[in-house]
Design a protein around this nucleic acid. Structure first.
Lengths: 190, 190
DNA sequence: GAAAAAATGTGATCTACATCACACAATTTG
DNA sequence: CAAATTGTGTGATGTAGATCACATTTTTTC
């Protein structure tokens, strides 16, 4: 789909932008393309942008001291990704962002977002709604992690996002659920 | 501390309200008092308000089908608490809110917040910043849960919030970490 | 301040998942 | 298309934390 249209429909779910305002807002973004396997943010980087996914699939992840990876998010089209702690608090990245497939994104810098929020109240409203939604989703995931076993959570995930089953290697899905790839593999034949 | 002043200083960390604007905003709140053990929100309720804690300690929690409780948050003074999923999406509460000690709060209804956000841009800015912060914190907690063992997370929690050690029963701290009270108890003498 | 209720400690046993090890399959690369 | 790389399946074994059971301590209530 046309990038501008995808963004417009995404925003329309929570905020009301006039066509002029949307044109205005859209100009704050810059498009970029990445190849499968490329990294958009690597731990230690200065983080300047958040990324709105147009096509492909992107992961955000954390790697601990033992080099074990945890996936925070699989970002499909019309999702946003970045290291928000680093972005908002001007700290170095501890979260990485990488491409699971070839991907196109729209980049929005911290400064651009803040300026757009100041100039266009409905843009600030949109980002408030977005962050509220992310917070609620993150809490739900935390609860599900504490409450349900691996099998249940795996089926929950694949039911919610069937695309992931073929698009994403199982070891990354295991890393999303915080279990070893062996354990995930053993769910089929118990 | 004076409720108005506590709220003012809390907001000042992320938004700039003139004294007039703050007076205006403050009028949207209504104060309430609760006794230790009382519930502010019970699962199944219609949720109309979020709560800004003035004094005491409040928990937000989820109870699963086996009646096992998980604590999402210990809200101390200058923290906010509610079931945000229910509040924003006009659904019935699945998260409860209860008082660990006697507590005083300021209630802000959904309508009041939205009206204040519309009329006072810096109020909308404040809530955006707040939700961004909550999202980042929630992700950090998820990572810590997947990455660290109980002992580490317990010490992390008590280091960050030493008040909890004496104020909150250990079984609730266990419920916050998603482990049994027995396991928490065994951390002392391993 | 005695009785009841709630919270905590501690042993014994069970279990979901981790880790290690290696075979096999699929995908990428030159 | 052959070789190298990356991903997946599966057995054997180890372990953190759950669960059950009961004793002890602390707090609440009348």
């Amino acid at each position: 789909m046309d990038p501008k249209q995808l963004l417009k429909e995404h925003i329309a779910k929570t905020a009301k932008l006039s066509d002029n305002e949307h044109d205005d807002f859209f100009n704050y973004f810059t498009p970029k393309s990445y190849k499968k396997g490329e990294y958009i943010i690597t731990a230690g980087d200065r983080v300047d942008c958040e990324y709105f996914v147009l096509s492909g699939c992107i992961k955000t992840f954390y790697i601990n001291d033992n080099l074990k990876m945890f996936v925070l998010q699989f970002a499909m089209p019309a999702c946003w990704a970045s290291d928000y702690n680093a972005l908002y608090n001007r700290e170095k990245a501890t979260i990485g962002v990488g491409c699971i497939t070839d991907a196109e994104v729209l980049c929005l810098s911290n400064n651009a977002r803040e300026e757009a929020c100041k100039r266009i109240p409905q843009v600030e409203h949109f980002f408030r709604a977005r962050m509220t939604g992310e917070y609620v989703a993150s809490q739900k995931r935390l609860l599900s992690t504490m409450n349900n076993n691996v099998k249940y959570r795996y089926e929950e995930l694949i039911t919610l996002f069937p695309e992931l089953y073929n698009m994403v290697p199982k070891r990354l899905i295991a890393a999303y659920m915080g279990v070893s790839r062996e354990t995930l593999s053993r769910l089929h034949n118990p």
